[in-house]
């Protein structure tokens, strides 16, 4: 494969992955905005509590809790769902790169993309 053709293929891959980033960001911002509006509607008149750290005693700190809370339309869970989508956007991009390298049988970069993906999934699901 010549350097130029490789560059062309990478450019078109980039266009697809670039679109993924844009739409992912837009979708997450919309979900955060909807959850935020509902949150302000319900809790807007209360005083904020951000000066005191509650840490792990606070709810909504696992993917399962967020999904179940959002399905019951809890405003704070909807915001967290939007934040999760935001975190998922770069992860989807790495998956896209992994698939592209698999398709091109570029073994070194299949391994490299898989390592990055493993670190991301570890942080999100296992840590």
């Amino acid at each position: 494969m010549s350097t130029n053709r490789q560059t062309d293929a990478e450019q078109s891959l980039e266009a697809v992955l670039g679109g993924l980033l844009r739409w992912g960001t837009l979708l997450s911002a919309t979900v955060v905005l909807i959850g935020g509006a509902a949150f302000l509607w319900v809790h807007g008149a209360q005083p904020p509590h951000y000066a005191t750290f509650r840490g792990e005693t606070s709810h909504l700190n696992s993917v399962a809790d967020i999904v179940s809370g959002a399905s019951r339309l809890q405003p704070e869970a909807i915001i967290q769902l939007g934040l999760l989508l935001l975190v998922a956007t770069p992860i989807a991009r790495v998956i896209g790169a992994l698939v592209a390298f698999l398709w091109r049988r570029d073994r070194k970069y299949v391994v490299i993309s898989a390592l990055v993906l493993a670190a991301l999934l570890y942080g999100l699901l296992a840590s």
Binding site: L21, A29, V32, G35, G36, F39, H43, P48, Y50, F53, R54, G55, E56, T57, S58, L60, N61, S62, V63, E76, A77, I79, Q80, L83, L84, L86, V87, A88, T89, P90, I91, R93, V94, V116, A119, L120, Y122, G123, L124, L125, S127
Partner: peptide, 26 residues
């Protein structure tokens, strides 16, 4: 973005992500 996504999961589990605060900031 990819770097930050790796630590975001750890932050989430430890309760560092407060939805009410993150919403206006993001």
């Amino acid at each position: 973005g990819v770097t930050a996504a790796a630590s975001a999961g750890v932050y989430l589990h430890r309760g560092y992500l407060d939805p009410g605060l993150a919403m206006p900031v993001v």
